[in-house]
Amino acid sequence: MNAVTTVFRALDDETRRVILDELSARDGQTLFEICSTLSTRHGLSSTRQAISQHLGVLEAAGLVVTEKRGRSKFHYFNPEPLAEIARRWPVGERSPE
């Protein structure tokens, strides 16, 4: 799979999109925090194992990067692959302004 395909496949899932929403609202979350906000704020009852797999897909697509701080692993939203989409199909040029 090429990079663009990986990004679009990663985005083609509501749970993964909600994970990106949550990370863009508060960047740098542990798996525990992501699981607790997904279930309490979004009513998503996925198992921790399933969320972990979703994060793996997002990480493989470059949309999430992880960093070990102390002994815990934190997940960060990386918008760069989305910026590449916007560069390829710019959104501004047909706007009224």
Binding site: Q29, F32, E33, S36, T40
Partner: peptide
Amino acid sequence: VVFTQPPTDVGTVMMAVLDDTCGNL
């Protein structure tokens, strides 16, 4: 004290997670 999770609204309660420096959260 280091927190791995700052205060978070989880609906019925506010919660946060801290490192106890002895190996536990």
